[in-house]
Each structure stands twice: as C-alpha cells, then as structure tokens.
Write a protein that binds this DNA or RNA. Sequence first.
DNA 1: AGCAGCGATACCTCTGAGATATCGCCGGAG
DNA 2: CTCCGGCGATATCTCAGAGGTATCGCTGCT
Lengths: 315, 315
Amino acid sequence: MEARHLRYALALAEHAHFGRAADALGIAQPPLSKQIADLEREVGARLFDRTRRGVFPTAAGVAFLARARRALGEMTAAASDAGRAARGETGRLRLGFIASALLEPLPVVLGRFGRERPDVRLELHEMATSRSTAALVAGELDVAVTLGHPRGAGAEHLVSVPIGHDHLVAVVSTAHPYAGRPSVSVDQLRHQRLIVASGEDEPATSAGLRALLGEEAAALCGATVARDVHTIIGLAASGVGVGLGPSRMAAAPRPGTWLCEVTPRTPLPDLFLSFAASAQSPVLHAFLDVIRRSCPDADAALDHRPGRRPAPPRT
Amino acid sequence: MEARHLRYALALAEHAHFGRAADALGIAQPPLSKQIADLEREVGARLFDRTRRGVFPTAAGVAFLARARRALGEMTAAASDAGRAARGETGRLRLGFIASALLEPLPVVLGRFGRERPDVRLELHEMATSRSTAALVAGELDVAVTLGHPRGAGAEHLVSVPIGHDHLVAVVSTAHPYAGRPSVSVDQLRHQRLIVASGEDEPATSAGLRALLGEEAAALCGATVARDVHTIIGLAASGVGVGLGPSRMAAAPRPGTWLCEVTPRTPLPDLFLSFAASAQSPVLHAFLDVIRRSCPDADAALDHRPGRRPAPPRT
DNA sequence: AGCAGCGATACCTCTGAGATATCGCCGGAG
DNA sequence: CTCCGGCGATATCTCAGAGGTATCGCTGCT
C-alpha cells in the first residue's frame, strides 16, 4: 500500500464520484478506478459502495478513511517537523555554564534565544569548566560556557571561542568607606577583609590572587571564601568585607552594592563558548548565531569556524 | 512523498548502513541511496549523517522518523481496521425493539452477540413498531424487533422475518386461586379483574381482547391497563388481578407468579426482525447470523433472503 | 426505445523504481 | 608512504506499473 492509495481514497470519499475525484487529483478516471480496485483487493474488503446516486464509503471504508487521514497527516507533519528541526526551530539545547556566566552574557543571550526559538527546549546545567569539558566530549552537552579553553582528555575535539574579557574589580556595600570611589589600589586591599571565590572556575580564585596580593593577603583571603560570584556579591552587600570578582559583575548591579576598579588593572581568564568541533546541530548553530550578535568578541572567531554546513539540498 | 520513502528511511535508521538496509528491504544499495536522496531533497533537509562508522539520523531525521513510524502504523492499522469492519468485528448496531422482546428472544440473542462481537457497539432503543419502522426507513436504525410486518411509508424497502410465535397466556400471583392450574378458560377470565397492555405494540392489547372476551369484559379490562408487558407481570405478581400477555413471558418467569394457558388457545401477532432490504452492513449480517442460530423460525426465512453479498475481493 | 451518465475494462505509453557496473573517498594494514 | 577494502554516490539500462485514450455495459430517465 502506498500513500497514493490513501490520497485517492480520500479524494473519492470527498467527491463521491470517480470522475470528479479523478479531476481533482489531476488524473483520468480509469486509473483512479484501478487504484481503488487494487486497494480494495489488498485490504481484502470493499471500501466504497458504487450506487447510482454516488460513491459512498462502506463501514470498512469509514474505518479505513479515518486512519488514512491520520496517516497522511503524519506524513506531512514528518516533512514539516524535519524542516523545522533542520532550521533549528525545534529541538533541544543542553547548555553547561559556570555560575558567573549568569551575570553576563547569559541573561541577554538566553533572552534573545528564547524569543527567537520559543520551541527549542533549553536544558541549563550549572557546572565547572572541567565537568563541562568532559560532558561535551561525552556528548552529554551541546555547548558550554567555560572559563578559558577547555583542557583535558578529548578537549582537542572541541572548539572554543572567547565571548568576553574580564578584569578584577572590587564590590562593597554602599555603607562601606570605599562606596562612591571609582577605584581602589591593590595596596589598599591588603588592609581589608577580602571575600574571594573558592570554586575552581571562578575567575578570581584565592590561588589566583596569591600572585596578585602576595602571600600575607592570600592568608587573609582564606578567612572569607565563597562558592561562587553570586555569594561574593551577597556577602559584600551585607558588609562582611570587600568582594573581589570579575568586572562582569557590573552587568547585573545589585542594589546596595558599589563596584570599584582595582588598580593596577588585573586581567582575569576569559569566558569561552565551547562545543564539539564535529557538531552539526542546527539548534547549536542558531545559538551560535545569537552569540555572534550578542558578543562582539565572538563574532570574528565564529565566522572562521571550520566544519560549517549551511543547507543540504543541492540543485 | 510515498510510503516507500518512509519504509526505506526506517530501514536505514535501523541498520545504520545502506548496504545492509537495502538487503533487508530486498533491493540493491543504489536504489536505496537514490530514494533517500530524493526524500531528503523533497523534505529540504538532510535526514542522515553518513559517517565512516555508520549512517545516523540527524536532528531532522530523528523528528522525521518518529512521524514516519506513526504514519506507517496508521496505514497498517487502516488496513486491519477495514478488514475487521468488513468482517463485522467492529462497528455499531442500532437496534430498536418492543419492550416485550426483552422477555424473549433478546436476552439470548444479545448475550450471544455480545460474546461473539465484543468490539461492536450496541445501541439499544426500546420503541414501538411504528417508530422502529420509520427509523429503519430513515436509516436511523440498523435492525428492529417489531410486532408484525412493518407497515406504512417506506415499509416496502424493509425485509422482515418471523422470529417467534406467540399465544395468549394468563399470569397470576402465586397467592391467586388460579396458581398451580395448568390452564384457565376464557369463560373463567370473564369473572376476574384483568390486567392488559395499552401500548400499541403489546401483543395482547385491550382492543385485541375485545374480540376474544366480548364487550363486557373489554369494559372490565379498561379498569387496569399497563404500559407494557413488564408492568402487567408486576401488577399480577402484586395480586391486583389476572394479567394477560404473550406466552413469551414463560421465558423469564418472575418469582411469585404463575402462568396459565388460556383455553381456547388464542394466537397473538408474531414477533418479526426487520431491516432495510438494501442493508450491506457486515455487523448486521453478523447479527442476523446470531438470530439464525437462536430463532428456529427465522432460520429458513433468512437463508432465502435476497441481496446477500459475501466477500468483495474477486480473484 | 433511445439516450445520457457513470464506472469498469482493454490496451497503449512512458515515467521512474530498481538492477548492474563503476567511481571516488577515506581508513587501516603493510 | 602505498595499497587494499569497504562504503556510499553516480551512470546507465530495464521493465513494472501508473496513467492516458477508447470503449463497453449497465441503469435510470425521458
């Protein structure tokens, strides 16, 4: 049985007349008669009653036609679903990200992506760069926001592009003496209670600060350690001390806090967007497109990415 | 797009290999390649990734295959549903019947039919013969149990076969003096309070009894009139009087009642099974088959019925 | 009785599904 | 490195069958 038989049977049921149904199908009447006869022989039951007043489905025909309609509906839906999936309008995107990416650029990126691709199911997983890397290699994530280029086993199969530069800034409560100051120096920080992150993926880790501030300050840092940047901001806001974190904090300023530049300006590791070099997922490409438009840094890098494949049909 | 494309795509997805999928389909590899390519061109999206380690569906392919499976499932279901409908295994039977048919033969007939055709939806409508006739002519019923041959407009398009003979019997409470007697005479009935049916379709109506008992008894009859035979039995059981009804009452004897033959034996109008002479419904034929096996009277009549059509496929 | 409408049948045509042969490409063995 | 083998794509041919034209048979209507 072929889809043609279903289409012909439906047309015949609709027009109740072999000649008119054949006209509507763009074929002559004899082929339609033959195809219906073939169908009835294959099904093993008469599907239409040919009366003088018209052609009407039998009980078997009614049962058949109901299924036929659904079958053809599924077929057209198959084509349109495939098209939508190919265009990245539907599907799934599994995104790994470090916590501080929620400051920037995820709010803008996810907002745009959700608006442009409302039917894509976003699966968000906050995780450290090392876990993101492993998950990308294992095919458990489609894309990840990482701190620095991914490293470790299988990282050579990943592509990563920078999506933002960062440097160290300080965050204090508006009640803190530093509030209102545009900047503080590293020397001034030595005499403050410092709040730093311990998470392996936070840009300004205590280990990283050791070089910047020296061993004695590093010891002080150990006094107040937060799991991630969001906690640093919260602790600073409550006046516990001076928080140190990435300048991305300025993208989502928390009421009751004040940000100061730290002099000398101290660069922090860049944020990267990483994904499998072999990834073909149209949803991923759509996501990369949003990244390209949202992150000037990524734009150039993405345009030269290898392994792109635009549209399959070749005329 | 044809069903062939769906079958080929599913086979390819299953075997992840053009050659083996073609083998499984019983065709050579090049036609499979071409059909898949045609399908991808028609859908406008690449459905399979050809890698060195195998052929795997893309995101679009996954979406397509899910629909394809359902479409093919609907197609096979269409054929099997049509077959079942043609064999009368599924469908609907709208049965009209007069109330007294519930004594006999409906309990046996409906029981057998329900057991043999569990997937047929039975729609039961108690109604008078005149309404059954009109409903059959209008196509609102498939078959009806009627009292006598249907008459009136369109009745000539109906076929009816006798499914049972009846004669008049009396029903009394076991407390009644007649209880235990095999028979009572018409003369004895003249001195009793009689309970008769008023429904136009009850076999022993007051009008019908007038001839049997004479005018004076008929006046008495007017004293206790029941809508249908079930009420007659109930009233007789409660000792209100002597009920008169069809001998079919013996088929479902009610505890606390006693049946007497009435002498002389008085025949009542026969029960008939009626249906449209042009009816082709396989469910109806299945029902007639049950009738044939349940009602000896109907057997011979049904075997000579015109317009039978066994199986459509002609080799 | 004659006619007109409709579906079935007979027969022809030509599209396109499928077969065979071969190519191009890549990965692994040596 | 070359050579070989496996796999999918391509080229070309064949023939089954979808569809076209002509016509028949039946039936209801005038």
